[in-house]
């Protein structure tokens, strides 16, 4: 294969209302399949809603939050919810999907510095 890259992913929109989160997920899967590394995912703006454990979509639809949770646990990908954006929107430790954690914007900065590409998914 070609050059192996380290990707960071920034998601700015919540699930369902916008396609950003689905696209980011598909991007992460494709990058991993091609042998690249996904160093981390940072959830900001309404993107923090991708980590709520309160989601319960109809059974014939995808469960966006659950997909992220599985990816984090199965592939060991670090998914970080911004604490300030999360508090504004009611995302706290008690209602986070498994495999994600709450931290600060310093984590986003570290991701931007340490990866080869920071790819943003927003509206």
């Amino acid at each position: 294969m070609g050059v192996k890259l380290k990707f960071g992913i920034l998601i700015l929109e919540g699930p369902y209302q916008h396609q950003s989160s689905d696209s980011a997920y598909n991007f992460a899967i494709a990058a991993l399949e091609k042998g690249h590394e996904v160093s981390g995912v940072f959830l900001y703006n309404d993107g923090v809603n991708n980590a709520t454990s309160f989601g319960d979509p109809p059974q014939d639809d995808r469960n966006v939050q659950e997909k992220w949770s599985k990816l984090a646990q199965e592939k060991g990908i670090d998914i970080v919810v911004c604490i300030a954006a999360g508090k504004r929107r009611g995302l706290i430790d008690d209602n986070l999907i498994k495999g994600t954690r709450i931290s600060g914007l310093g984590q986003l900065t570290d991701l931007a510095i340490s990866t080869d590409r920071l790819v943003t998914f927003g509206d």
Binding site: Y44, A84, G104, L105, G106, L108, T109, A112, I113
Partner: peptide, 10 residues
């Protein structure tokens, strides 16, 4: 703006 102020510390 909040991101700007944090990243600026780095």
């Amino acid at each position: 703006l909040e991101v700007m102020l944090i990243v600026a510390a780095y």
